[in-house]
Design a binder for these strands. Sequence first.
DNA 1: ACAGGTTCTTCACTTAAGTTAAGAAATGAA
DNA 2: TTCATTTCTTAACTTAAGTGAAGAACCTGT
Lengths: 191, 191
Amino acid sequence: MQDLLFDFISKYISLTDDEKNAILSLDIFRSVKKGTILLKEGQKSKDSYFVLQGCIRTYYVVDSEEKTTAFYTEMDALTPPCVISKTPSEYYISCVEDTILTVSNSDMEVEVNSKFPKFDAMCKILSEELLAKQRIDFDAFKTSSPEQRYMNLIQNRPDLIQRVPQYQLASYLGIKPESLSRLRARITQKK
Amino acid sequence: MQDLLFDFISKYISLTDDEKNAILSLDIFRSVKKGTILLKEGQKSKDSYFVLQGCIRTYYVVDSEEKTTAFYTEMDALTPPCVISKTPSEYYISCVEDTILTVSNSDMEVEVNSKFPKFDAMCKILSEELLAKQRIDFDAFKTSSPEQRYMNLIQNRPDLIQRVPQYQLASYLGIKPESLSRLRARITQKK
DNA sequence: ACAGGTTCTTCACTTAAGTTAAGAAATGAA
DNA sequence: TTCATTTCTTAACTTAAGTGAAGAACCTGT
């Protein structure tokens, strides 16, 4: 399992065995059951996540309605905004499937980064890449209709459509579950 | 003018006079006229921008129609995704108003960052903060209707409504200019 | 001040999303 | 397996956004 993490890291920096052992000694691997809530609205947290297997989602509760804003699957990293801003979380994080992930808190990261400067360099590159990637996702969302967004999803993350409930997908696409249902019917008609 | 830049930097790190002079010697300040296009679709670029005064916008051209996705005003930093991915730009950047900004290319940054490690640290913090901020903006966009988005804009960036043409604001809100016009009429009715 | 262009608003009409409600299908636990 | 709960679909109706077209308001440069 940890090989998945090291494979990912090796795309950015190369680690010595010593460094790998230092990471392993942190005991950051966790296995969590479907439905587990990792973070609640109002909670403070210093934890960042990296998904090795499975799927987690972030959602807000507005007027007692869930609004899913993101899904994180294999090789996705998530540092909740509340960790950066040091304020209570605005949203929930829960497991869509049984999931294996790493949990690292920001104190640990400060320590590892000061011991291994190249790890710090990797984090910088990673967050710059994520910033650019997220910007492009945001732009694509803004400039397209719900139907186009759904088509994009089929193209770019076809697995999500299978592994995630429709009502969660709907708010991820910025619409209601009924609209997603209709939209899907419309598309299969066209073919 | 440069004081604005140093005031901004001082929120993150403190600079010695030597360091300030090193930055000034890079000759990064530019004054650009309204309408100037800083980056075109298809171009490659290594330039990042920091707006000291004025306003610039990013937009895509889809079916010969402009889709504005972001506005950058005083104290906003912009590193286009194409600089990170090292691929041709997908979008345009142009000046909404006469604007004073800094232009720094990624080679320069590598050099400055290796000379002044604390500058590198600032960049890391900045991109993490921007990532979190942008995530929150994206979530807010997804979970609200065009009307709510417009109300949010009045709250959070009232200046934009004054200084930016309506048709650019419309696509920024994810709708057509005609819809924005109606939406505004609807709101003034309600009051 | 004027002409030409750009930008904004309005209208009538079309299309799609929101809402409410009901029932079908799938899932999970006992 | 069965029952209860959750999730998904369908339908009728309401509301708002997209479209096409026209004219008003507003710059901007000469």
